[in-house]
Design a protein around this nucleic acid. Sequence first.
DNA 1: CATTCGCGGTGA
DNA 2: CACCGCGAATGC
Length: 692
Amino acid sequence: MTEPTSAPYPQEELLPVPEGAARATSSAAKGARTAAENLPVARVVVDTPLPHLDRPFDYLVPASMDADAAPGCRVRVRFAGQLADGFLLERLADSEHQGRLAFLERVVSPEPVLTAEIAGLARAVADRYAGTLSDVLRLAVPPRHARVEAEARPDAGQGSAPEAGSVSPVTWSGDAWAAYPAGERFLTALAEGLSPRAVWPALPGTGEGGPSWPRAIAAAVRAALASGRGAVAVVPDGKDVALVARALGDTPHVAITAELGPAERYRRWLRILRGEVRAVVGTRAAAFAPVADLGLAVIWDDGDDVHSDRHAPYPHAREVLALRAHRAEAGMLIGGYAVTAEAAQLVASGWAGPLVPPREEVRAKAPRVRPAGDDAELARDEAARAARLPSLAWRALRHGLETGPVLVQVPRRGYLPALACQHCRAPARCGAQRLPGPVCSGPLALRNGHAAPYCRWCGRIAGDWRCPSCGGTRVRAVVVGARRTAEELGRAFPSVTVKTSGRDGVLATVGTAPALVVATPGAEPVPEDGYSAAVLLDGWALLGRPDLRAAEEALRRWMNAAALARPGAEVVVLADSAVSVVQALLRWDPVTFAERELADRAELGFPPAVRMATLTGPPAAVREMLADTRLPDGAQVLGPVPVDGGLERAMVRVPRDRGPVLAKVLKGASGVRSARKAADVVRVNIDPLDLI
DNA sequence: CATTCGCGGTGA
DNA sequence: CACCGCGAATGC
């Protein structure tokens, strides 16, 4: 409305406009502007949440902004009558747009924050997840912090920042990988500038100096740095970032976590962008860190659901890094004590190779795991009896407490109640045959007032249910909530210090003194010298979850806890040894388990064997969207079924090679919906983790 | 979402 | 025949 008085226009804008030059339509109040002589067109990705506007738009670069308007910089543009933020993708000689171009409103900062590599990666991630480029860029490029950006411009101040990565040559050693036959070869390849890709089931065990995996990751990072390239390592949480950062020692690197705060976070991110450091360790957002000339991408414990972003389009750090390594021709290391079906799929397809330890190393490093099933004899001790602690577990803890800290893993609150076979406790799944596809296999649940269970996926009433394992015909609810058990444990060992670590209040480490450490999965404190015993209390709570990944997740959590025990220490798991996932733990064999899990998923028709999308929203909207979408051939629709909040959810599955088409049509459909004023939004999620 | 476009209705 | 209004289309 009113003319700004504090910001005088640059001289150029007052000069007369040459006849025929493009001019902004609404710039009368601002005076005429001339376009830059060289490459006057700026291709801009505009920050808008609307899927149908997910493409670049062309603007004219005013001569006054010619120098600043470099590819990758942040700009402000007039878009649909409003000012909007955007990134300048490239400068062009002319535009394909027929109509008249508007001028850039402002170059927010000349800092080229969006590199070509990250722009391409973000586009690929958006396509893979049926999301928009803007949505992904919000995850990939941190918000600007003007003061931080100004405080250390490379050309400001005296001298330039030391190029830490290139000044002192990085040396590397294969010591941390000595136990792996292929380890040396993997590191040598990285150091020579090659790009090996591996799935790495890490050896368990922790001794002095804590667990060994951070040192192995640090060694791989150094090998990549030695080739003159950069490296990115993504780990689940701040505790693990600290472990890897410590293992990197004086190898130049930056650690990026959420707790840093916007200023420090942006400061470190800029150091990466400006090439002052080439090694990054951080949580999931670090997967997009603008490391130049990437040589290695690492992800640790890719089964942890914190690797999946909580914002649309919900990309998973493993997928982001795999796309990135593939596009940048970088190496990749997918590590963890357990192995996900997705990682097994990457090996099965030949994209990655196995980097496995030999059996004898596993035997030497793993704890002794013993099962205590349902029928196990309860401890004689009265307090332990009250906690329903089997005598086997009680003895292990008591014995362990003589030489150090012991770990008790208890389930987290908030698991959904599920149904299991009353006789053998196998999770009850839907047996509906969907011709020509596989059986539904959704989890069964009971609805208020109905005697027969129904399927949470396809909605079918399963009146004729029969357990595939034992032939039983009756189901029962799996009881959860063993938290009280943990409290009662304290009473079973009255003279011992009890430490707890959970969601609220994570304890990072424990010392070597005897202590009873009660922790929920993922919050286990790292012991200075390993736990002398461990008891995994959450067997049925984990396995009974109505989740496709219940078994995989149980093994992952068990292994993550058990790996913190000293080699040979006694670990007792409260689960039936007849169950194959328990067998995998006893034999410490994550690879065979993952391979079988992958085969099972193929048979049942679940990711990663197929590509799946869920559509969640108001019932009418979901049905409407399904009707409007031209799904690819061979697509199969399950549901929609009611979910929480009065919404419905449908699932669509297609063969893996139709994944890109599926994402494309779903994005097209949501584009049409958002263009109309369809207020009832349908959330699209590709390969979601929680296929309840 | 904000704005413009365009067709048909309406009233002088 | 000009103008209004609302739904559809568009966004550089």
